[in-house]
């Protein structure tokens, strides 16, 4: 977010020492408040691929109750979501579609690779049709290993996304397709 472009009246970037300081502080302050809010209401896109999707559904069910943390709003449309949980094996046939869905998500967006298949290909890594990890297609923020991970592990993974947001580790994303 560039505050200088919004007509707030701050001087442009790199003009003089004090104004950049003000700009940086205000910018960082607003961003950290926004990130705090984002971290508490991540909306995942409903995107189940394989076995892990069942555990993802279970995480949303009554016993594990993902909504305790504000993460339960699974959106069918990627345009309304900011977290993609890649739950399952990504095949060569699915890979371009997965990329499309990622591209359709608005910024800022985060990706969580759930399960061995999404992390690195898992037990199917040697297959002729399986992508060896979803991080070869889209950038991944948090990896949750397991085959499949338990719902607790998934919740922990999403909490890690939240923690990273609070620590402002996801601010810069060089890879943005």
């Amino acid at each position: 977010m560039e505050l200088t472009d919004t007509g707030v009246g701050l001087p442009a970037h790199g003009q003089s020492e004090p104004s950049t300081l003000i700009k940086g502080k205000v910018h960082d302050g607003i961003e950290s408040i926004l990130d705090f809010c984002r971290g508490n209401s991540l909306w995942p896109v409903t995107f189940g691929l394989a076995c892990c999707a069942i555990e993802m559904m279970t995480a949303g069910s009554a016993r594990y109750d993902l909504s305790r943390f504000g993460f339960e709003v699974f959106r069918p449309s990627p345009r309304q979501a900011d977290l993609m949980i890649v739950a399952g094996t990504v095949t060569d046939k699915m890979a371009p579609l997965l990329k499309t869905i990622y591209d359709q998500m608005p910024e800022p967006k985060y990706v969580l690779a759930m399960g061995g298949c999404a992390v690195c290909g898992g037990p199917f890594a040697d297959s002729y049709s399986v992508v060896q990890g979803v991080d070869t297609i889209v950038p991944v923020d948090v990896y949750v290993p397991g085959c499949p991970p338990r719902p607790e592990a998934l919740i922990d993974g999403i909490l890690k996304v939240r923690a990273m947001l609070r620590d402002r580790k996801l601010k810069e994303r060089p890879f943005n397709a």
């Binding site: 399952g88 095949t91 046939k93 699915m94 199917f124 040697d126 297959s127 002729y128 049709s129 399986v130």
Partner: peptide, 13 residues
């Protein structure tokens, strides 16, 4: 086929 993991071939190895 979006989840075709080629398992019958993997079994041979």
């Amino acid at each position: 086929g979006y989840l075709h993991r080629g398992i019958e071939k993997l079994a041979e190895g």
